[in-house]
């Protein structure tokens, strides 16, 4: 078996910005003293005159981005998820989202897989925060390929887009033929016993879980839900009707993220059991990212466990 190529989604993001920068000059990229980490540094190096560093002042950066967008120009701002969605929440809400401005927020180092930096930097609440804002689009790519394609789609989008990227190198699942569309989930594996809806780095874990379940005679449908808002309600409702039980998997709190979005949709429209896998309402701590994913139960084996529970709850 050949070695699986692993690349962090943040690297896909940085590469996409660089590629965009070579094609068009109608946008500005900003960062808050984290260009090397967020990977906007790739763009900064090639196009220093089109890159502005706001320094360690994320609230101001969001306001500046709103001002640029209010003049009809495009702008992409970056920081870690904790400081973008967390610290600058109200600036995003009031200055960017209320006027529905075209600002792309590239939030990296999301989730528990930040690793050694520990809890202060492990943002597992950003999807919940951003999801509560009217008109916000939220994209959580699964791999490098999807990260790039999502950036290209986001720059054409109407209104604010929150893009969530990871620090940890994760397997590249998709090839260049993969079609990405904002607001569309993608069925990666057919199956009718149960559906696993995953987002971000949990998509690869879900694909591994598919094989483990198959070995036990369970045919799981696997859906990659990169866009968490607006949620692809069609693909979720179809899965609920055809498979009768859902598992959601995300590297985010079980409160307010993908699992909540799916539960909210189904409870009002087609109630079936939904079992959520995510960070279980707790803070993280320091450690190597792979070990943290093991410890916090964000692995294929954990998905298998939750899947069996979901099936047992089927009427």
């Amino acid at each position: 078996m050949s070695e699986v190529k692993k690349v962090a989604t943040r690297v896909g993001y940085g590469a996409a910005l660089l590629e965009l920068g070579k094609k068009r000059d109608d946008f500005i990229v900003m960062d808050a003293d984290l260009a090397a980490a967020t990977q906007t540094g790739m763009f900064k190096k090639e196009f220093p005159e089109r890159f502005y560093d706001c320094g360690i002042a994320e609230q101001n950066m969001m306001g500046i981005a709103a001002g640029i967008a209010a003049t009809g120009k495009k702008v992409i701002v970056s920081s870690f998820a904790m400081f973008a969605a967390g610290r600058a929440f109200e600036q995003i809400r009031n200055s960017i989202a209320y006027p529905h401005l075209n600002v792309i927020i590239g939030a990296t180092h999301a989730g528990i897989s930040v690793g050694e930096d520990g809890s202060s930097h492990q943002c597992c609440e950003d999807i919940a925060l951003m999801r509560s804002i009217p008109g916000m689009t939220i994209i959580n790519p699964a791999d490098e390929t999807e990260a790039k394609k999502a950036v290209f789609a986001a720059i054409e989008a109407d209104g604010p887009v929150y893009m969530r990227f990871g620090r940890l190198a994760v397997p590249v699942i998709f090839d260049e033929d993969y079609k990405f569309e904002i607001g569309k989930g993608v069925e990666l594996k057919e199956g009718n016993d149960v559906t696993i809806i995953a987002t971000g780095l949990m998509v690869n874990e879900a694909l591994e879980a598919y094989e483990l379940l198959k070995a036990e005679g369970i045919n799981a449908r696997i859906i990659n839900m990169a866009t968490i808002k607006p949620l692809d309600s069609d693909i979720v409702l179809k899965a609920a009707k055809e498979t009768g039980a859902i598992v959601t998997a995300e590297e985010h709190s079980v409160i307010g993220g993908l699992g909540s979005a799916v539960s909210e949709l189904l409870s009002e429209n087609y109630p079936v059991p939904v079992v959520k896998l995510g960070v279980n309402d707790t803070f993280g701590h320091s450690g190597p990212a792979p070990k943290l994913l093991d410890e916090f139960g964000l692995r294929a084996a954990n998905i298998v466990e939750k899947t069996k529970i979901a099936i047992s709850l089927k009427k």
Binding site: I28, Q59, A66, G67, I68, S95
Partner: peptide, 17 residues
């Protein structure tokens, strides 16, 4: 309306200009 935010937007506009 949320105080402190308007000046950042004004800075963004001046930068864009």
């Amino acid at each position: 309306g949320s105080l402190g935010q308007g000046i950042s937007a004004a800075v963004g506009m001046a930068l864009s200009s």
